[in-house]
Structures are given as structure tokens and as C-alpha cells.
Computed example of a mutant assay.
Amino acid sequence: MTHTLSKGRYYVGDPAYLIIKNKEGNDFIEKLWELFYKDMNKFHELTIDSIKFYAMRTEGGDGFFDGIGTDTGVFIILDMNQVKGHIAFKQDIVERGCKIIDIKQDTIAEVKDFNLDIKGYLKVETQ
């Protein structure tokens, strides 16, 4: 399955690393899990509280895959400009265990066999 990513600065990684453990963050992640687990094998395009992002599971569950770690077995792809100043999200993300990529023009994000390919920017194998 594929989705188009527009120009922007994207976070790719475990949602738990980006989302703050406060009431707003907990509410957001509970909504995320409720939607995601309706079909955890799908490459989702989700919108929660007007924030659009993409979510996929790893084939290998928890682990470290091509420089990206997860202890939820899930990666999200989120344009960080959407969450600037948002109380539920960390603002100064350090690229450690996640990836921050600057997409210069629209590109395709594809998940095939639980492997992520953001065309021209990033490939992650999750076996």
C-alpha cells in the first residue's frame, strides 16, 4: 500500500518517543491504538485531532530496524510542522532511535511485506 507524503519535515519512529506522557498525549495515543488495531496489518493513513499521519507495524515486533527503534512494534510517519507547539508532542526531537527526514517534494511512502520505502529518502526493513 502507498501514500503520498507532501513537502515537510517528517518524524519516522515509535509514536511513544514523540508523544508526551501527559493527559493530551495519553488521549492521542489511546485514539491511535484504537484506530490502528482495527487492522494492524494495514499501512494506515490516520487523522486524530486534525493531525494527519501514517502508521505501520513492523514484522519483527519490538526491536531496532535500520536505525529506528520500537518497543510498540509500530512506526509512525508524521509531518512535524503539524505538531509545533502542541502540548501532546515533544518539540525538540533528537534523532536517536528515530529518523527525521526533510522531504523536498511530494514523494511516495510504500509498505510492502512490512518494509517501509519512502522513495528517495529512507528504506527500513523490519524482519
Rank of each mutant, 00 (worst) to 15 (best):
E24L: 14
E95K: 06
A88L: 09
L32M: 11
K42H: 15
V12S: 01
F114G: 00
G73N: 09
M80S: 06
G97K: 06
I87F: 10
P15T: 01
M40A: 07
T107N: 08
I29V: 07
D113M: 06
S6A: 11
W33I: 05
F89A: 02
I93C: 12
K7H: 10
A16R: 09
F28E: 11
F64H: 05
V74Q: 06
K84Y: 09
K90H: 15
F53E: 12
A16T: 15
F28L: 06
W33Y: 15
G120H: 07
L78D: 08
E45Y: 06
F43I: 10
G73A: 05
K84V: 09
G69S: 07
D117K: 15
N26V: 13
Y10E: 06
V94F: 03
M56R: 03
R96E: 07
K23V: 13
F43C: 04
A109M: 02
Q91G: 09
T47Q: 01
K23E: 13
I51F: 00
G67C: 10
K42G: 00
Y17A: 13
F53Y: 14
E110K: 15
K31W: 05
T58M: 04
V94G: 08
Y121A: 01
D39T: 09
F64N: 01
I68A: 00
D92Y: 13
M40H: 04
D113P: 00
D113V: 04
F28P: 04
Q91I: 08
T107V: 07
V111F: 11
G63C: 03
G60S: 04
G73R: 00
K21G: 03
I29D: 08
I101A: 01
K84R: 13
L35R: 15
F75C: 03
T2I: 12
M56Q: 02
T58W: 00
G120S: 06
D49F: 01
G13K: 02
